[in-house]
């Protein structure tokens, strides 16, 4: 039995502890945002956050994740109330087939949690592990910039109201 904390909820999982997280997210928890692209840690379609760090869930056995905080796109917001990164991707229409996008959003979220106003070079650097075969990169970059601005603005309003 492995206890996983996904998007703030505890789940008791009874599968082989060697199973990579991606399969558990999709098959057991029916959280289907993270995608299977290569299964080899080479494409980033399966990217999720573990303790605020983007990781490839296809090569991370659940046994190493007990007591750690896992987040997927489902934890960023809902269809009715998308989070800032999701909204930015929607507003920039940053998707062709969309297969890489959940991974892109999680990597962007991870970046923005560490660095609220990244430079273009920093965004490119941080997003580099995630591949997009449709060629949506320019829109994705715009979406990340937009999300950064939105999150800064949000933080500003929160500070204003706190005063």
């Amino acid at each position: 039995m492995t206890v996983l904390n996904v998007n703030g909820q505890q789940h008791r999982i009874d599968v082989d502890p060697r199973t990579p997280l991606l399969y558990v997210l999709r098959n057991e928890l029916k959280l289907n945002a993270a995608k299977f692209g290569c299964g080899l840690g080479q494409c980033g379609a399966c990217t999720v956050l573990v303790d605020h760090e983007p990781v490839f869930s296809c090569i991370l056995p659940i046994s190493v994740l007990e007591g750690r905080y896992i987040r997927t796109v489902e934890g960023l917001g809902s269809e009715g109330r998308p989070g800032p990164v999701q909204s930015a991707f929607i507003e920039e229409q940053a998707a062709q087939c969309g297969y890489c996008i959940p991974g892109m959003m999680m990597r962007a979220q991870g970046l923005l949690e560490h660095n609220a106003s990244p430079s273009d070079a920093q965004i490119r650097d941080a997003m580099a592990p995630n591949l997009c075969r449709c060629g949506t990169q320019m829109r994705i970059l715009r979406a990340v910039r937009r999300a950064a601005k939105a999150m800064m603005a949000d933080a500003g309003t929160i500070q204003e109201t706190a005063k």
Binding site: M1, T2, D14, V15, Y23, I62, S63
Partner: peptide, 18 residues
């Protein structure tokens, strides 16, 4: 993977490896 229980898994089927 088919040998699973869902999120509401009953405790008891412990796999000590984890």
């Amino acid at each position: 993977i088919t040998t699973s229980t869902r999120a509401d898994a009953k405790p008891g089927r412990t796999n000590n490896d984890s």
